[in-house]
């Protein structure tokens, strides 16, 4: 019963956060003096044409009314304009790009596979590398390995992703000619080509994130290994492997999983910089293109979509806590 309440509470909490984030985002972007109708009106823009464009886009009403229309569209879809010129945007309608003449949800769906491939592949690599290196460093504290790994990690934490990415392209793309310097092939077209294009971006992201996780894991592990129950476990005669692997790691995982949820959520919502460096046509590129064109519905849609992903990732983390540490649900 407590578990059901715990899960239910978390889901309600996530929905509330989502609602607040969406109102905030919507208000900020629509209160700024960038009138989408003005931008798409063209020249000469007569007052009559401007008013028509506003009515067509549904921006001739106050922002909160627009927000309610937006919310309605999410559940029921919505139609812009009327008569033969009308465009329909089916549920869940994240807005409609009049510039690209397509629903924002379609645009996002087209790009999401790229970002998803990039983020999940890198995440697997950095979790293994980062947590592994951190545990080893903690267990062999002060050793040559520990010093080397931690020097490497502080460099990784300090290096901006675009710099590492560009240096990687320079070395492995141009000089050694081992991997392509950019671009993307869908998995369904050619799995091998897909892999080929993603290897370098994965490694770059994995290196940067693994550095953070190695530092975090090492610090947590050192703290946990000083606890009484670890001494108890050792006193019971358990092998060191089991003490570290079972009793230590389980307690280290809670903060690691917390950060992992935030990171993965952020990345899934658009690895803007990495996508730019490696010319990957993902969500981040969609956002940058929309920013260049001042395509407001796409900007708002992508921002909200990435908020949804982060909140979902956090929700998943909250629920995972209950699995890792059963005390949480009580």
């Amino acid at each position: 019963m407590t578990a059901v309440r715990f899960v239910g509470g978390r889901i309600v909490g996530a929905l509330v956060v989502l609602l607040i984030v969406s109102v905030g985002t919507y208000a900020v972007f629509y209160l700024l003096p960038a009138d989408p109708a003005q931008l798409s009106c063209g020249k000469p823009c007569t007052p009559q044409r401007l008013a028509d464009a506003r009515a067509f886009m549904g921006v001739d009403v106050p922002w909160w009314q627009q927000y309610l229309d937006f919310l309605g569209g999410l559940f029921a879809g919505r139609t812009f304009g009327s008569g033969p010129a009308a465009v329909h945007c089916g549920a869940p309608c994240f807005g409609y790009s009049f510039r690209l003449d397509a629903p924002v949800s379609t645009l996002i769906a087209d790009r999401f596979a790229v970002t998803f491939s990039l983020a999940t592949g890198a995440a697997v690599l950095w979790l293994l590398l980062g947590v592994g290196a951190g545990v080893l460093s903690a267990v062999r504290r002060g050793s040559a390995w520990d010093r080397g790994a931690m020097t490497f990690a502080v460099a990784g934490v300090s290096a901006p992703s675009y710099l590492v990415g560009l240096l990687g392209i320079l070395l492995f793309g141009f000089t050694l000619d081992m991997v392509p310097v950019g671009g993307y092939t869908p998995f369904v077209d050619s799995p091998l080509d897909w892999l080929w294009h993603l290897v370098l971006p994965w490694c770059v992201l994995a290196f940067l994130f693994a550095a953070v996780y190695a530092r975090l894991t090492r610090g947590q592990m050192l703290e946990v290994l000083g606890e009484d129950y670890i001494r108890t476990a050792r006193a019971k005669g358990l092998r060191e492997r089991r003490v570290v692997g079972r009793h230590g790691l389980r307690n280290v995982l809670i903060p690691v999983v917390t950060v992992f949820g935030l990171d993965l959520g952020q990345l899934l919502g658009g690895a803007v910089i990495t996508e730019r460096v490696f010319s990957l046509p993902g969500l981040g590129s969609l956002l940058l293109e929309a920013v260049g064109n001042v395509d407001l519905p796409v900007i708002v849609g992508v921002t909200l979509f990435s908020a949804v992903l982060i909140i979902l990732a956090n929700l998943a983390v909250d629920l995972l806590y209950g699995v890792i540490d059963p005390r949480v649900t009580h």
């Binding site: 935030l262 803007v272 956090n314």
Partner: peptide, 12 residues
């Protein structure tokens, strides 16, 4: 914390 801050900053 649950906010796509970089994306929001870019858009803003």
């Amino acid at each position: 914390f649950g906010f796509p801050s970089l994306i929001f900053m870019i858009a803003l």
